[in-house]
């Protein structure tokens, strides 16, 4: 059984094809939207199906057990509205 390698900083000018996970790797994708999801809190039961299906991780769980939208990044695909069993999300045109 061996050990891991020693991570030693390069000693010449060094730039490698490396990244770290971070939001906005192509910018604020909210600008891609043509329509935006609007949550009706009164209809939302907090079932979290929209949160589960959202491809972007832009459905935010709120402290009252419901959901809100991260409009900075939401691309407006509309999956959340399509999967909501309670019609608590509407897609509203932004153009």
């Amino acid at each position: 059984m061996g050990q891991g390698p020693i991570l030693q900083a390069p000693e010449t000018f060094f730039i490698a094809p490396l990244s770290r996970p971070a939001p906005g790797s192509v910018g604020k994708t909210g600008s891609w939207r043509t329509s935006k999801p609007v949550v009706y809190e009164d209809k939302c039961t907090g079932c979290m199906l929209c949160w589960l299906y959202c491809p972007e991780n832009t459905i935010l769980k709120t402290s009252n057990g419901k959901v809100a939208i991260d409009y900075d990044y939401c691309k407006g695909c509309g999956i959340c509205a399509a999967v909501c069993p309670f019609k608590a999300i509407d897609m509203v045109s932004e153009v």
Binding site: Q3, G4, P5, L7, A9, F14, A16, S19, R20, P21
Partner: peptide, 26 residues
């Protein structure tokens, strides 16, 4: 000496190797 390298791909490092870079940086 024991193996040395500039980085590793591991759960701890959370490094990503090889996704698209700006042309100038490439």
């Amino acid at each position: 000496p024991p193996r040395r390298q500039p980085y590793v791909i591991s759960p701890e490092s959370n490094y990503v190797m090889g996704n698209i870079a700006p042309d100038e940086v490439h």
